[in-house]
Structures are given as structure tokens and as C-alpha cells.
Design a protein around this nucleic acid. Structure first.
Length: 421
RNA sequence: GGAUGGGUGCCAGAGCGGUCUAAUGGAACAGUCUUGAAAACUGUCGUCUCUGAAAGGGGACCGUGAGUUCGAAUCUCACCCCAUCCGCCA
């Protein structure tokens, strides 16, 4: 959510943001609604003030007649007030409905574009492997070594179901350990957070109301979050943090659930797109300064790149275009890993910053050096998401005989094992 | 799932229809005293929002939302959360 004052004063900028993000939103309609809201609010408040005045005079009335007169006066004023209040409630509802649709302003450096094809490659790392044999895809490799069971996974869980087993299961735990150690050493606090969450943290992080279709919902009205970011951000909801405690750096684990509504025909096989997976997410809350946000954004990206480098997985970093940005995101880098079987890079990480878009909704503040209360800035980036990461990992490190070299950094967590198969 | 009690400011805690602009402690901050500190004393001490250049002024907020009333922290209803006991249970 943006500050309405900011929207009022920068209407043109907001309008260009909707265009850049390819979101249809009528800024003028919001402004009109806001004018009405403010006018009505002033009226209602003046009437309430009057009402309070009379109510206070009643017990001090000089005579029973005077008392009666005051009560009657108040009664008739009350009728008018009630009517106005209803009008205000109505306009507030409309106003808020529009407010949660206002996109955050993308950074100047965000390229124009409609979809992920328009993203701009920023840098590449690692040599794309050349095979003197026909490389297998991860599904074949999984089946060959019993790393995953898709048939039984589907039997149990339905479409997109999978079961990880053997070294497939071990790899996931090894990756978890690896990531946890690396980021704890970087000063991140590890957390295991709920995936079953209430509406508020999802609205606060910007996944609702727009993304309701993509979320699983329980009969109690709770939701299954698609990322650990939701609960981690919700953790500090309605809090005022101490300046000395900033930046807050968390490395959070949770299961993640995605309905993948509208993606039915995409990546229908294997481990790339699944309904249920595991995520280690980096989350940072920092001071409300653009420079800080930018600094930590690069830092979060660098952290994940280091993990990929230590794993030895070739990747590139792309700068997301405006049309590929979420409602609240100011700027986003995706790390995409090389997937030999598809002869292309596929997204494994996503690093974004939000300024105070999320924290305003979540009411996460801190007192600055002057003692002024301010909304913190928030950022996040994937540390590792599995099993998707297994796709490039298995495919890039496969050998002619189908065996798979285990990255050195994971071996300590695989009982020293160097090779699968 | 059942039963009971409860949610008040940074913390503890009183208030249970009009004097609440929320008592009283404690904490914090500033000052007096002191070589310095402690103690004591004095003062300050919420958030949000509208309006205003500012000073200031108005409004809202006692878990959340609705309601009763001229008037609600106080009464009613629903919900959320916490505590304790019973039941079930990894």
C-alpha cells in the first residue's frame, strides 16, 4: 500500500507505474473517491464533535426541562450523523478497495516490458556444460537412481504429486543444512515458520486480495502460504522495532503451497512446478531509506549467487521488466539456473524489495534517530527452493554413464558421498 | 470438542453507564541536589487521522467488529487471542 498523501501529490507517477507494470488501475477514480472521503470525514467529525459537546452538557443541565431539551437536540442531530456515517462507511469501503490495488512505483532502472521475455540479463556465471553424450532430463535421472517417484506421488497427491526418496530426499536435507550454515554465518537468524496462515499476513505481504486464486484455503478461512516470506513478515506485524535491532535478517524455512491456477499446461512433469515444496527464504527489514533497500537488495542477490557458485550450478541473473513485477515490488532480480534438458535458464530464485509497501500494510514500524515513527523497508530473496533446485543440480552434474557428481559443499551432509550411481 | 476466568497506555494494574482529558505504582526522558552516582524532589511522557505554512484546532482508539443509549473502557451480540481444568492426541 502506498501513502494516500504520496498518491495525491504524485498522481502522474502512480499512473505511469500502473502503465509500466501493465496493471489496469484508474488513478483518477481513486483521487475522486479520496476527495469525497476527506470531505465526508471532515463533516462527520464536526458533527461528532457537536454531539460530544451536547452529551457532556446533559449531566450538567440546570433543570429537568433543560436536560430534556438537550437530549432531544442530540437525538435529532444523531439521526443526521448516522446517515452521514453510513455514507462515509460506504465511501471508505470503495476507497480501501481501490487503495489495495495501487501498485508500488517501480525503480527507474526497471526496464520496460510486458512479460518475462522482456527481462534483461544482467550477468552470467559458470560455464554451460557441453556433453559428448545426450544428456538426460532430471525426470529420467530421478527414475534411474530412485531419487523421486512421480507415479506413486501422483497416486497419493494427485496432479503434480511427487515423492522424494533415497539420495533425492537426502539431497534436499543436505541443501537445507548447507544453506542454513552459510546464511547463519552471514548473520541471518534461522526460523521455521508456519505455512498455514491467516488472511492478514497475506494481505500485508501483498498476495491478497489479488492472488486468492493461487492460494489453497482451509474450511476455517485460513490459507496455505506460497512462501515463507508471508509468515516471516507477519512475525513483526503491528510492532514497533528498535532502531538498534535493524536490519533484521532472517533465514526462514517453511513448506510452500501453490495452486498454480492458470498454469495447468506448464511444466506438467517433474520437479519444476509442483503444488507443494520447501523453501528457505531470506527476509530483511531495514531502515526506511532507498539507499538501504538498494544495498540490501544487491546483498540478498549476492548471497544467493554465492550459494549457487559454491554448488557450482551455472546461472544468470535477470532484471525483471515492469510487467513482470508484483504489485508491491519496486525492483526484482531473478536468478535462473541452466537446465541442460531444456537448453535454457529456469528461475530458481527471486529477489525483490518493496520500500514500505508491505510494512505499511503490516504496520511494522521503528523509531528513527529523531524518535519519529516510520515504516521499515522490507526485502526478500529465495535462498533455496527444493525440489526445483534439484533439476539444474542433477542435470548439470550428470556423467556419460548417468551417474551424478554431488557438489563438494553438500558431501559432508551426504555422509561423504561423492557420486550418485 | 466441553467448562470457567480474562484481554485497559512501555510494564504492572484500578475503573464496570455521564466528573475517563483512564487512577496508582514502576520504567523511560529532562531538570534540581551531588565531586560523580544512588536516593529524594520537580516536570515530561501514547498512537493514528483530518485540517493548517506554522502555532494550533477537530476526530478516533481501553483485543476486533457490530449493536443498545442523548452519552460506552463500562451494557448486549459475534469473532479473535490468552490462562486454567476436562476430553482427545503426534
Amino acid at each position: 500500500m502506498l501513502d494516500i498523501k504520496f498518491i495525491r501529490e504524485n498522481a502522474e507517477l502512480v499512473k505511469s507505474a500502473t502503465e509500466k507494470k501493465n496493471i489496469s488501475f484508474d488513478v483518477a477514480a481513486l483521487l475522486t473517491s479520496d476527495d469525497t472521503r476527506r470531505a465526508l470525514l471532515a463533516e462527520v467529525e464536526a458533527m461528532r464533535g457537536k454531539q460530544n459537546e451536547i452529551a457532556q452538557a446533559v449531566p450538567r443541565a440546570s433543570s429537568p426541562e433543560e436536560r430534556e431539551r438537550l437530549i432531544n437536540e442530540s437525538k435529532s442531530a444523531k439521526e443526521l450523523l448516522t446517515k452521514k456515517e453510513e455514507e462515509l462507511a460506504e465511501i471508505m469501503k470503495t476507497w480501501y478497495g481501490l487503495m489495495v490495488q495501487v501498485p508500488n512505483i517501480p525503480d527507474m532502472s526497471v526496464p520496460e516490458g510486458k512479460e518475462d521475455l522482456d527481462n534483461v540479463e544482467v550477468r552470467t556465471w559458470g560455464a554451460i556444460p557441453t556433453f559428448d553424450f545426450k544428456p538426460k532430463d532430471h525426470i529420467e535421472l530421478c527414475e534411474m537412481h530412485g531419487l523421486a517417484d512421480f507415479e506413486r506421488g501422483t497416486k497419493v497427491a494427485g496432479f503434480r504429486g511427487y515423492v522424494l526418496k533415497g539420495d533425492g530426499a537426502r539431497l534436499v536435507f543436505a541443501l537445507s543444512q548447507f544453506v542454513l550454515n552459510e546464511l547463519t554465518a552471514e548473520g541471518f537468524e534461522p526460523m521455521i515458520v508456519p505455512s498455514l496462515v491467516r488472511r492478514a499476513p497475506l494481505t500485508g505481504t501483498g498476495f491478497l486480495p489479488q492472488g486468492e486464486e493461487d492460494l489453497y484455503k482451509t474450511q476455517d478461512g485460513d490459507f496455505l502460504a506460497g512462501t515463507a516470506e508471508v509468515a516471516t513478515m507477519g512475525y513483526h506485524m503491528d510492532e514497533t522495532l528498535a532502531l538498534a535491532d535493524l536490519p533484521k535478517k532472517y533465514i526462514s524455512f517453511s513448506s510452500a503451497f501453490r495452486r498454480e491456477a492458470g498454469s495447468h499446461s506448464k511444466d506438467t512433469k517433474g520437479l519444476i512446478r509442483v503444488h507443494e515444496f520447501f523453501k528457505w527464504e531470506q527476509v530483511i527489514l531495514c531502515e526506511a531509506s532507498h539507499e538501504e533497500s538498494v544495498k540490501f537488495h544487491e546483498y540478498l542477490t549476492a548471497n544467493s549467487e554465492k550459494l549457487m557458485q559454491k554448488l557450482g550450478i551455472p546461472y544468470h541473473v535477470v532484471l525483471n521488466c515492469g510487467g513482470d513485477l508484483g504489485l508491491g515490488q519496486v525492483k526484482k532480480y531473478d536468478i535462473e539456473a541452466w537446465v541442460p534438458s531444456q537448453n535454457t535458464y529456469r528461475e530458481t530464485h527471486s529477489a525483490s524489495y518493496f520500500h514500505d509497501f508491505q510494512t505499511r500494510r503490516l504496520n511494522i514500524r521503528y523509531k528513527d534517530a529523531e524518535g519519529k515513527s516510520r515504516f521499515a523497508h522490507s526485502l526478500n530473496n529465495t535462498a533455496i527452493a527444493s525440489p526445483r533446485i534439484l533439476v539444474p543440480l542433477l542435470e548439470n552434474f550428470q556423467q556419460a554413464d548417468g551417474s551424478i557428481i554431488i557438489p563438494e559443499v553438500l558431501r559432508p551432509y551426504m555422509g561423504g558421498k561423492e557420486k550418485i550411481g
